[in-house]
Write a protein that binds this DNA or RNA. Structure first.
Lengths: 124, 124
DNA sequence: TGATAAATGCAACTCAGTTGCATAAATTAT
DNA sequence: ATAATTTATGCAACTGAGTTGCATTTATCA
């Protein structure tokens, strides 16, 4: 069941539309410093994840990041979803790329979290 | 310059030799509960990383993990070093596999952190 | 309009990781 | 050997992310 699209929820979604990339929770909490409580932000993000509007991952900094994304590979292989952490602009973006899995090794892969570090398409 | 191989340092290294896989710092701190202070453990791990005896990464739990590894791919492509988080045994192991990079996208990749989730070679 | 359910705020908490400073142990110079 | 210096460890207090319980507000529905 979908959550209420309150003013705060819509503002949060707007942040993700403005931002072309992922946002760290801490950053978002700071952006809403005078508008909403941090607990609220944490809860809204969690619920938007449940609804699969957003997805979350642990950033290279060990913090929780959220992103809205419409990559075909993301929809197809939910888990196999790489991101790039750009040195230039500092943004973390989703990459529409399917990471191949090692076929020679006798391992079974259910999902993956891939974080690349380098220069993104905008900055390259 | 190499740090002193004190009794504690050697015990820490021994833990990594016994363990076939990565160890979370919190776990290691707990293992040394009565033998060494947590600050000491944090510092030893940091220094062993500087010496490139260990390497660290952020686990899927957002915690810091360390591992000793001798994979050829690790030595060759320092950054490109995938790990597998096994559902069966709960261990995190290094994978000797070179992750291909997306060639069609105009991005430059300097390093990557890859965490696969599934079943490791021992459990498969 | 009153009852119920969902959303928000607030304060206090947990837990990983860090920092400053004092002490202890090992090296080096005298 | 002993003193001076460097390096390692311990301890306590702190920071900052994320969580929890509970009270309050806001929206929904009977």
């Amino acid at each position: 069941m979908e959550m209420r699209r309150t003013k705060t929820v819509n503002s949060v979604l707007l942040e993700f539309q403005k931002e072309h990339g992922a946002i760290a929770v801490t950053d978002l909490v700071d952006r809403f410093r005078n508008k909403a409580n941090k607990t609220t932000i944490y809860r809204i993000l969690e619920r938007l994840c449940d609804e699969e509007v957003l997805h979350s991952f642990i950033g290279p900094d060990g913090l929780k990041w959220y992103a809205e994304c419409h990559c075909p590979t993301h929809k197809k292989y939910k888990g196999f979803h790489p991101h790039i952490d750009c040195d230039e602009c500092g943004k973390i973006r989703c990459i529409d790329f399917e990471i191949p899995t090692p076929k020679k090794l006798k391992i079974q892969i259910d999902m993956s979290e891939v974080m690349l570090k380098g220069t993104c398409e905008d900055c390259h």
